[in-house]
């Protein structure tokens, strides 16, 4: 049931991506409305798949919520990240009307979801000592929310860089008319970066607690933790520079891009070296005994 729902959600996301991409070429309002509706429908189905996974789970505590379960046959983490990003985008779109960001978010969501659901690796059951860990639940939620906020900030930063380049070169391209103002992109991107930083801070703090609970070490040395701390430090520096020196514009956009890439490095580290990953993270994604 959960798998079926998530596959239908994926189809809705794919259709939304198509609508937004066609809109870039043929700017009809109906396409934006269709894209928005399909994304929303996909998100509802996606959330429904989470609910179905929980209701069907036989586990206890956090395991019941799908953590480490075999219900989706891998890819839960990416699924969660995709859902959080889509939810974040829809909230932004409701306030600011940013279809051009939809043309980025929807295809990226599909790109993240497809491999996640094609990989049929088994999952390792959650570590017994973490079955009722509140820190793990907060860690996963804040990591997903922070990643979603920074993914959206990353998308807006790319839009900013493209738009700024066109304005500086005095040669607006065909898509120029679809781009929002620099000021709006910058302002929304800044808010998202701050929220991303806040969630990332919580994720790192709770992550060290989880690590301590499961392995006894609060700060294990591993690529995942290294990239996460680097991303956090970069975002902290960015916020400091903005508040103290008034940095904004191109250099802030470049820093957000770099920060998000470091965060991607965190997930790459998580996937590439599961043996170094904390038990909690491994429970989420690592193909253990299957």
């Amino acid at each position: 049931m959960a798998t079926l729902l998530v596959h239908i959600a994926l189809l809705a996301y794919a259709a939304a991506a198509a609508a937004y991409l066609v809109w870039l070429v043929r700017p009809r309002q109906a396409l934006v409305s269709a894209g928005r509706t399909l994304l929303f429908a996909g998100l509802l189905l996606h959330l429904g798949s989470f609910a179905a996974a929980v209701s069907l789970s036989q586990g206890e505590g956090l395991a019941r919520a799908g953590f480490g379960s075999d219900a989706w046959r891998g890819g839960q983490l990416f699924s969660l990240l995709a859902a959080a990003t889509v939810a974040g985008y829809l909230a932004l779109d409701l306030r600011y009307r940013l279809p051009v960001a939809g043309a980025f978010v929807a295809p990226v969501t599909v790109a993240v979801m497809v491999p996640a659901h094609l990989v049929h690796g088994g999952t390792r059951p959650i570590a017994p000592e973490l079955t009722h860990s509140l820190a793990l639940a907060v860690h996963v939620f804040s990591a997903a929310a922070g990643t979603a906020a920074l993914a959206l900030a990353f998308a807006l930063s790319l839009l900013y860089l493209v738009s700024e380049r066109q304005l500086k070169s005095k040669q607006p391209g065909r898509l120029f008319a679809r781009l929002p103002s620099l000021e709006l992109i910058e302002r929304v991107g800044w808010h998202l970066s701050v929220w991303g930083f806040v969630f990332l801070s919580v994720a790192i703090a709770t992550g060290s607690l989880v690590s301590h609970e499961s392995s006894g070490s609060a700060f294990p040395i591993a690529p995942k933790q290294g990239f996460a701390v680097l991303a956090w430090a970069l975002l902290a520096g960015l916020i400091q520079a903005r508040l103290v020196a008034g940095w904004r514009g191109r250099r802030v956009a470049l820093l957000v891009v770099a920060g998000f890439l470091l965060l991607v490095g965190t997930y790459a580290g998580l996937l590439a070296a599961p043996q170094h990953v904390s038990a909690a993270a491994a429970a989420l994604i690592a193909p253990g005994r299957g």
């Binding site: 043929r26 700017p27 009809r28 309002q29 738009s163 304005l167 120029f176 008319a177 781009l179 929002p180 103002s181 620099l182 000021e183 709006l184």
Partner: peptide, 27 residues
């Protein structure tokens, strides 16, 4: 007007200046 880009983009000097100001500064 809604289905084509025929009305998109300013075509006089003063309106291009205003359009670009909006593009940089928004509202």
């Amino acid at each position: 007007r809604t289905e084509t880009g025929i009305a998109r983009g300013a075509v006089s000097i003063s309106s291009v200046a205003v359009q670009m100001a909006h593009k940089v500064l928004g509202d």
